[in-house]
Write a protein that binds this DNA or RNA. Sequence first.
DNA 1: ATAACCCTTGGTTGTTTTACCAAATAAGAT
DNA 2: ATCTTATTTGGTAAAACAACCAAGGGTTAT
Lengths: 106, 106
Amino acid sequence: MTAKEKALIEAKANILKALGHPTRLWMAEQLAGGEKCVCELVEDIDADFSTVSKHLTVLKQAGVVIDEKRGKQVYYRLKVPCILQFMPCIEAVLQATAQRHIDLVK
Amino acid sequence: MTAKEKALIEAKANILKALGHPTRLWMAEQLAGGEKCVCELVEDIDADFSTVSKHLTVLKQAGVVIDEKRGKQVYYRLKVPCILQFMPCIEAVLQATAQRHIDLVK
DNA sequence: ATAACCCTTGGTTGTTTTACCAAATAAGAT
DNA sequence: ATCTTATTTGGTAAAACAACCAAGGGTTAT
């Protein structure tokens, strides 16, 4: 494996890793429906404001979202909407996995 | 968010997390070309036998791969091949992100 | 039976993540 | 100017992760 190939795979893994946390994945799914400010996300989830903000920072650094400050609030949105296209496949994995998962997807 | 929705998102995040490590992502890509035994993966990468084995266990528990013992060796393969279909989108994120990433994808 | 090979498991250590709290910054309202 | 409101940043402690080494369990070959 060349250094370039290695760097590419690390970059890709980093994006998947960013989405590989329940809170962050949930946020990405929320943003698929359109931009939201941090406060809206905080409101919908049982977590600290700072926690939400830090998760958004992770997504931002991974290149999954971008932010824009408007007035008092900061709005986040998906940078590349296709990100959530692979959810059906993820769910197919769950389907294929175990009995206990099947009812999750249905 | 109901308990069920929460469980679903955790399960999905777990799959993405499993793929969110350079070595594991690399393995998944290798297996996209067909099953391989652990020894073949170890040979192609600069890592300990036990490290490779543990990474495979993570992928297995996430439902991404399945294993089959044949003779002395254990063969791993992708359980749901579509897993790697979203790589183009991941690369699109890289493209969209920063100058320093662009040359990685090309 | 012994040896050699393939793989997993257990243990250890260092690193990374995560969540919360408190404090700091920034913008709009009074 | 002061006070909210919205968000980020810094700090800290607990938990999870990752890599290596050593040891153990099967399986085939001798």
